[in-house]
Amino acid sequence: MTALPVRVAGLSFRVRPRGVAVTLAGLAVLVLLMALNMRLGNISMSLGSVVTGVLDPASPDHFVVMELRLPRALAGALVGAALALSGAITQSVARNPLASPEILGVTTGASVAVVAGIVAAGNVYGGVSGLLSTLGVPALALLGGLTGAALVYALAWRRGLDGYRLVLVGIGVAAVFTNVKFWLLTIGDVDDTGRAMVWISGSLNARGWEHVTPVALALAVLVPATLLGARSLDALRFGDDTVTALGVRMNAARALMILAAVLLAAVATAAAGPIAFVALAAPQIALRLARTGRPPLLSSAVVGAVLTAGSDLLARTAFSPVELPVGVVTAVLGAPYLIHLIWRART
């Protein structure tokens, strides 16, 4: 893949035309999906009424558009972008296409905390509702995710953060969390298990502005930060000796990029649960579309947003009035597409 140099007033960048094209095409699809997401639902409305619903507070559609559909659509896109970006960073640092925030302890840690909360509250306080579901679950998820990540980080750190050791430690910690989660699911009431399973699958059901804002803030800070750090990811793909020779302060670069991945995944998981497959598949899809050597960050994020927003559209409307958790659909959509790309690439 050739990179075109772009030089403006003393600044110079290298731009890969194919990567830019993938990103732009992805954004266009995303806009289309958002528009569809706003129009379709229990009541379908024309694009015109969506627009008036957004602009005119007095419009009868204002509530549905601004308080129900827009925040949910935004939450889907932003959460997907955050998960995919997190996955792209993790795969680059670990130099392993199978790596995902799961091995950073984030999603599994969050799952244990939330399942424990649901199971405990289910037995003691009679069901998860009200305060616990709107505030408690995201808080538990955030706490669990960050604790899990801190554990992996601390255990993997030994005079630096070696990508390979990180992966192995991550496997170990994830195994504990996953099995504890399985066990918690067996001790609870079967209704609680069901509720917990919905959350574990990842769901955007009834997500409002309070879920959108934290993810948007996190992306606003972390996207520019990770793009600045992207140069070091290119270097990290080589072995440690090469990296040091290329002058990247390896440990610092790796540690910071992983921290960003952890924060992105934690915030996204807190908002929507550990939506399956996005973090793993979106970077691999983007990599194949853009034909780059490592997952391209921006394109991965856009692909993640498209995958999640598209899946939520299906999850919401396909079996109406029954809504599936979005995480069930991401894999159903993403897996065949990824397989198709592997097939086509003929590597």
Binding site: P97, L98, G194, M197, V198, S201, A276, F277, L280, A281, Q284, L324, P325, G327, V328, V329, T330, A331, V332, G334, A335, P336, L338, I339, I342, T347
Partner: peptide, 25 residues
């Protein structure tokens, strides 16, 4: 190749897991 096998396996597993989740839900 190792990589295509691993990715294909992950993709198929994720797909089946999603379907299983849908059924049990």
């Amino acid at each position: 190749t190792p990589v295509t096998l691993a990715l294909a396996g992950t993709a198929v597993s994720a797909l089946l897991y999603a379907l299983t989740s849908a059924v049990v839900l």
